[in-house]
Design a protein around this nucleic acid. Structure first.
Lengths: 129, 129
DNA sequence: TGGTAGCTTGATAATGGTTACTATTATCGG
DNA sequence: CCGATAATAGTAACCATTATCAAGCTACCA
């Protein structure tokens, strides 16, 4: 089996994601990390993002429109996507709401529901004006 | 402005989607329609699927894993995705749950929430055994 | 009917996001 | 410091989807 070795590139990606409220795409992350490591490769960014997702250190958001986005906050929480500017924001919703939802969904269903993923859509504060 | 003209290819796609409980990908639809129209082009399938989505006659499901899927049932309802075999199934959840969820999400949020999209994950009946 | 404006098609090229490949470089336990 | 092997940069390949365009259909009206 394979162990995971340290890499400064991966550390840099983790640090950037931990310190931003935005939900950047792989390409945005690539641009950012290049400021510090000018020859980092886009493939390296993707490889490390997937590694971090597998390790449960970050979350991948597949919004369906365009590129995936990444969230350095791995704790379960919910997201809003602006239909006008595509910005992604965190939402404050009590966690038990989703347990209830999952339970509700399981009624009359013959398989086993283990989780769910929700995106909320609308207009963000900026785009409302 | 542009009017929409009849096309037998589009009718065939609509008919197929109306009569299946599966949630096929564009490619699966392409394969199916080819049985009747052997020289239909994949581009034609995509173009018509997008048209039908715009007209609100079908629904596009961007699951995040692989290709988008399409649903001939345009009425709002929820979906379950098997994490093992990727099958997509319909779920029976009362519609007002949507509204409650969206309202809940809007509390303490400075933008305007207009809708949401949820996917439930787990193991389907077949994959449980 | 026949003509015609312009929507639709099939074929294929192009695009965009992501992953795979490979020679070289970095990490780390001994 | 060595050696094994994971990680990297650079680049090609991949896949789903969209764009392009000449030729074919549809709808509508004379």
């Amino acid at each position: 089996m394979s162990t995971t070795k340290f890499s400064r590139q991966r550390e840099s990606i983790k640090e950037y994601l931990r310190n931003t409220k935005e939900h950047p795409t792989a390409d945005t992350i690539y641009m950012k990390i290049r400021e510090k490591y000018p020859n980092i490769s886009l493939g390296t960014v993707y490889r490390n993002l997937n590694l971090l997702v597998e390790h449960g250190e970050i979350i991948k958001l597949s919004t369906g429109n365009g590129s995936d986005r990444f969230d350095g906050n791995a704790a379960p929480h919910y997201h809003f996507i602006c239909t006008e500017c595509s910005a992604v924001e965190d939402l404050e919703i009590p966690e038990e709401v989703f347990d209830q939802l999952n339970e509700l969904a399981g009624k009359g269903f013959s398989g086993k529901i283990e989780g769910s993923s929700t995106f909320f859509y609308g207009k963000c504060k900026n785009c409302l004006s």
